[in-house]
Amino acid sequence: MDVYTIFKFLHVLAAMAWFGGGAVMLLQAILAMRQGDDESLMRVTGSLGSLAMLWFLPASGLTLLFGLVIVLLGNLWGEAWVILGLVGALASFVVGHFFLRPMGEEAARLIADGKIAEAAVFGSRMIRIAMVDYASIIAIVALMVLKPNWTDILALVVIYGALGVTAFLILGSKARLHPLRAE
């Protein structure tokens, strides 16, 4: 076993922690939205803020760090999948820092003022944005696994076309998620 393989393992492990932790939180929020339970939704979105510094930021930072080590060791700087993956990671950081964090702070302020229903509006928007962010992370995973080069137009169109359609369906929908029905 070589150093490259060790860092590739650490990269994948950190990515699993980042994606898996967020996926569970996102599922909890979607279930709260479907149940129409504003208080549960706000508990979940509130915990997203505290977990951001404790879990998501370190896990995503380690994913990036170990990935950069792999790129250096493998001399992969010109590869399409590396460059596009880095752009995707930067986009995820921007979404989290400049959109989700301020929305979470505003929701927390509204909760402190006793305005749960208004805070839930922010919570619902946050979850929709987080859903698109997770779709973009899935696109990054597809890039890392498929490793398309600049001439693999079909693979790139499929990856980014699926991301675009997903974003349109999530953000373009004004309807609240429908409640789950026990049958």
Rank of each mutant, 00 (worst) to 15 (best):
T63Q: 05
V132L: 03
V141N: 01
G67Q: 00
L72F: 15
G20H: 10
L41I: 04
Y160P: 00
H97V: 15
L156T: 00
A155V: 11
L62T: 04
A167I: 12
A119F: 07
V95W: 02
R176V: 04
I127Y: 00
H97D: 04
G85S: 11
F122Y: 15
D38Y: 12
G67K: 03
M53K: 14
G36L: 10
L27F: 12
Q28G: 12
V158Q: 05
R128F: 00
M103D: 10
L84G: 03
Y160G: 01
D37S: 13
G74R: 13
D2F: 08
F168R: 14
S124Y: 02
S136N: 14
P148N: 04
A52E: 11
F98G: 04
A14D: 10
V71T: 15
L41D: 00
M144Q: 01
L169Q: 14
G164E: 06
I170A: 14
A107F: 05
P102L: 06
G21F: 08
L177F: 13
L31H: 09
A15W: 07
S136I: 09
L100Q: 05
S47C: 06
A182T: 08
R43S: 05
T166G: 09
I129Q: 01
L10G: 01
A29N: 11
V71Y: 12
L156R: 01
I127G: 02
G22T: 10
A142C: 11
D2G: 15
F7H: 04
L41M: 06
A112V: 04
S40Q: 14
I70T: 15
T166C: 14
G67I: 07
L86T: 04
G104L: 01
G85D: 03
L100A: 09
W77T: 15
S173Y: 04
I140F: 03
R43G: 02
F7E: 00
I140H: 00
D2H: 12
L100H: 03
Q28P: 00
K8T: 15
P179C: 10
R109K: 14
A135W: 01
G85M: 05
A175R: 15
M16H: 12
E118W: 04
L51Y: 11
I137W: 00
W150L: 03
I129C: 05
L26M: 14
V157R: 06
A139G: 00
F56N: 01
I129W: 01
W55N: 08
A29F: 07
F9I: 15
F19N: 02
K115N: 10
G46M: 01
R128D: 02
R101V: 08
L26R: 09
R109D: 07
A108F: 00
S92G: 13
A182D: 13
D37Q: 12
P102G: 09
Q28I: 08
W81T: 12
R181F: 04
G96M: 07
S60D: 05
V69L: 15
V24C: 14
P58V: 08
A117C: 05
S92D: 09
S47H: 06
M131T: 02
D152F: 01
I140M: 06
G61L: 11
K8G: 08
G74M: 14
A119N: 04
L90I: 15
G22N: 13
L143G: 01
M131I: 03
I111G: 00
S40Y: 03
G104H: 05
L180Q: 10
M16K: 05
S47N: 13
R101M: 10
P179K: 13
R34M: 08
R101E: 02
V165Q: 07
V82Q: 07
G164A: 15
